[in-house]
Design a binder for these strands. Structure first.
Length: 440
RNA sequence: GCCCGGGUGGUGUAGUCCGGCCCAACAUGAGGGCCUGUCGAGCCCUCGCCCCGGGUUCAAAUCCCGGCCCGGGCGCCA
């Protein structure tokens, strides 16, 4: 049923490269895609057709195809979009054991030359050149594979969390106040007022705990106006956020590590083809992940440098710790003063029920049990030098029955970067926004 | 924002240190030609480049100054 609907939605019906096999020998098929390469041997021409799923060889022996088709085919420019009707022929000399002998080749739209970069990967291209010509960069199988995997990552996250009873929500990305302090926000013009692009759905997902949703999930963009210029920061990223009532930090850490393991298992099972293209071998990480308290983390870091208790861990420290622990691990029990106001402190108020999920030296997620007691929360806001009045829309939800709750936010691009061992987070974002890039 | 490195055909590099041998080289590409089993096809011919501005010099891709742009490291960053 679905397939029929899909086909009627198409301009014409065609098969994908992976749907054809040698045992379709003799059958007539229609294909559509891009001309990856043309190899003209004189009396024999090969066209390598590329579509979403792979490559297929179109073979034109001079004597076996119409002269007009033959002469036109050898002149088609690379990356032109063509439609091919032909007969499948079993052939041991062809890749995958078959080829297509065309009856007609229609150029649906020709490509200009020269190309802004090599789709064939014979010549490398710099990231900047690639991003300027992302439409073409994404035609490269290795680049495309990253986003096919990312798509499955998002799907697996949704499936897992829906299965766990989470309700997916969408919270506003345009907000009125510079909410939590800490990061810089992008100001925007909102009619006669100034507004901001939201840095995180944090406050909204907490309000929804008061609303009685119990378990919420949001996958959406977050915006940070920091002028950072590194291989692991973006100014627009995707955050996977959850918030859950009647649990604590331990509860949501367990959920997070199970989620990570489930996504890895799904990717291994469903994205084998793309992992092979990327030459990556994945293993499902073992659960539970190691838990390292902040205090023991600074002790490990002391091998390379002294971190006074209460200071944040800098990159050097995280590299030392990451090298020691390896893989996924949690850093827990952070000093309250370096975490945001909404984290729940322990009895000893210097330490908070907070955690970061790490992979090597990269922070993938951070979370905590939240402060749900109104008076304590107001105090915490003041202690950060912020004004409770500007949080009234949020604080109000804490005065009329706010359950204890906990949650986390996971950076989707960081997660994909860690999984696929990408050297630059921009590789994990289809159209990245960084300090200087605003186009395409 | 700081420090370092860089900008050479459409793409990716060599040449810069120590000015002349560079009207710039290699690969890929583009245009044309030969070739019936290519699969990073092969062979022949042709085309196309020194970021911008100023300076030094007989002579600048190369040295100096300014600008713009890019990369890396760090910082900033729930």
């Amino acid at each position: 049923m679905f397939a029929i609907v899909l086909k009627t939605a198409q301009l014409f019906s065609f098969m994908r490269s992976t749907e054809i096999t040698p045992d379709k020998d003799g059958e007539q098929v229609t294909l559509a895609g891009w001309v990856h390469e043309v190899r003209d041997l004189g009396g024999l021409v090969f066209i390598v057709l590329r579509d979403r799923e792979g490559f297929i060889q179109i073979t034109l022996p001079k004597k076996a195809v119409e002269r007009e088709v033959f002469n036109r085919a050898r002149k088609i420019s690379r990356e032109s979009v063509i439609k091919v009707e032909g007969i499948v022929k079993r052939e041991d000399k062809a890749p995958n054991g078959f080829e297509i002998i065309p009856k007609t080749i229609e150029v649906l739209n020709g490509s200009s030359a020269p190309l802004p970069l090599e789709v064939t990967e014979k010549v490398p291209a710099e990231l900047d050149t690639r991003l300027d010509n992302r439409f073409m960069d994404l035609r490269r199988p290795k680049v495309s594979a990253i986003f096919r995997i990312k798509s499955q990552v998002v799907r697996s996250i949704r499936e897992f969390l829906y299965e766990e009873g989470f309700i997916e929500v969408q919270t506003p990305k345009i907000v009125s106040t510079a909410t939590e302090g800490g990061t810089e926000l992008f100001p925007i013009s909102y009619f006669e007022r100034e507004a901001f692009l939201n840095q995180s759905p944090q406050l909204y997902k907490q309000i929804l705990m008061s609303a009685g949703f119990e378990k919420v999930l949001e996958i959406g963009p977050i915006f940070r106006a920091e002028e950072h210029n590194t291989t692991r920061h973006l100014n627009e990223a995707t955050s996977v956020d959850i918030e859950m009532s009647f649990t604590d930090h331990e509860g949501v850490m367990k959920l997070l590590e199970r989620l990570v393991a489930k996504v890895y298992a799904d990717i291994i099972e469903k994205c084998d083809k793309f992992l092979k293209i990327l030459e990556i071998k994945l293993e499902v990480p073992e659960v539970p992940f190691p838990r390292i308290s902040y205090s023991s983390a600074i002790e490990i870091a002391s091998k390379s440098q002294e971190i006074p208790w209460g200071e944040d861990l800098d990159l050097q420290a995280l590299k030392t710790i990451g090298a020691e622990i390896g893989g996924f691990y949690f850093i827990t029990e952070w000093p309250t003063k370096i975490k945001p106001f909404y984290v729940m402190p322990f009895e000893d108020e210097k330490i908070s029920k907070s955690f970061d999920l790490m992979h090597g030296y990269i922070e993938l997620a951070s979370g905590a049990q939240r402060e749900h007691r109104y008076e304590k929360l107001v105090e915490a806001i003041k202690a950060k030098g912020l004004h409770p009045e500007s949080f009234e829309f949020y604080l109000k939800a804490f005065r009329y029955g706010m359950p204890p709750h906990a949650g986390w936010g996971l950076g989707l691009e960081r997660f994909v970067m860690a999984m696929l061992d990408l050297g630059n987070i921009r590789e994990a974002m289809i159209f990245p926004r960084d300090r200087v890039r605003l186009s395409p």
